[in-house]
Design a protein around this nucleic acid. Structure first.
Length: 276
DNA sequence: CCGCGGGCCTGCGCGC
DNA sequence: TGCGCGCAGGCCCGCG
């Protein structure tokens, strides 16, 4: 799925269309997404005013200011499309949930692979529920630091690549941005997490933040499935240094080239020359 | 408790 | 042009 920058881009796109407005009508076309859409979703959401849209890791929280909060996750292929009025709406095969807002604007949750999720949690104590209760720090917040990351890595025997994909270590990273951050940090993805020195961990924190911020500024990355809420594409994918660039020369011009290996069943891209 | 592999779905690009 | 295969940004579960 979209990783943190794409989810943040989607959240920002949803704010104007939804915040301060109420939901007039909810249509659920399919309930059998991963985890299942709750049967009472429409009952709970209809008529509610949206007070706040918040992101936590790769999740978007839709707060109504009452005892329920809706949780949206885009899975691997989820999208949100927004139309400013009903007349402009296109119907697509995998449109699973359609929200009509009080001003006539339409918000559609589309997800071909159905790995996405939309469900309800208790409010205001949603952070006490899984997966939020087990989630690591927000990497762009002040609560995240080299010290925090070092603590999380101190007993980890898995490769640093795998550890950074674990949402309980730090929230919101996925395959792309982990590869990119490790490249900028000059750290091999195969290094066992607990062997990183504090100075390397400090570097990693800096580069994770930089790569995420740059990607958000570019509107995220558009691979096969991801687009912004107005259908336009992010363009950060043109800035990838190593991700999906197997065989290309290393952007550091070290004389080496980008390799692909498989870790935990997923592709990792890196420069064996620059990343040690 | 931890780490790994498989499963969940559909669509796309590639090679034959 | 058509078809089968491998692969994809994530997460959860069960096993060792």
């Amino acid at each position: 799925m979209p990783e943190l920058p794409e989810v943040e881009t989607v959240r920002r796109g949803m704010v104007d269309a939804m915040c301060g407005k109420s939901i007039e009508q909810v249509t659920v076309r399919r309930y059998d997404l991963r985890g299942g859409i709750p049967e009472d979703l429409a009952d709970v959401m209809t008529g509610k005013e949206i007070r706040l849209l918040e992101r936590r890791g790769k999740y978007i929280l839709i707060h109504f200011g009452d005892h329920k909060t809706a949780v949206l996750h885009l899975g691997m292929s989820g999208r949100i499309r927004i139309y400013s009025d009903k007349g402009a709406v296109e119907n697509k095969k995998h449109d699973h949930v359609i929200l009509i807002m009080s001003d006539g604007c339409v918000v559609i949750f589309e997800d071909p692979r159905r790995f996405g999720m939309l469900y309800l949690v208790r409010a205001p104590h949603w952070q006490e529920e899984k997966p939020f209760s087990e989630m690591g720090a927000e990497p762009l917040s002040n609560e995240w630091s080299g010290q925090d990351l070092a603590f999380k890595l101190s007993n980890r025997k898995s490769p640093i690549k795998n550890a950074l994909l674990d949402q309980s270590v730090v929230a919101g990273l996925g395959n792309i941005y982990v590869c990119e951050a490790l490249f900028f940090s000059g750290i091999s993805p195969s290094r066992l997490a607990y062997t990183l020195k504090s100075e390397e961990i400090e570097r990693l924190v800096v580069h994770v933040r930089t790569v995420l911020n740059n990607a958000i500024a570019a509107g995220g990355s558009s691979l096969k499935d991801y687009a912004q809420t107005d259908g336009s594409l992010g363009y950060f994918q043109f800035g990838f240094k190593v991700y999906d660039r197997e065989g290309h020369i290393c952007p550091n011009e070290c004389g080496g080239n980008v390799h692909r290996i498989v870790q935990g069943g997923r592709s990792t891209f890196y420069c064996p020359n620059c990343q040690v």
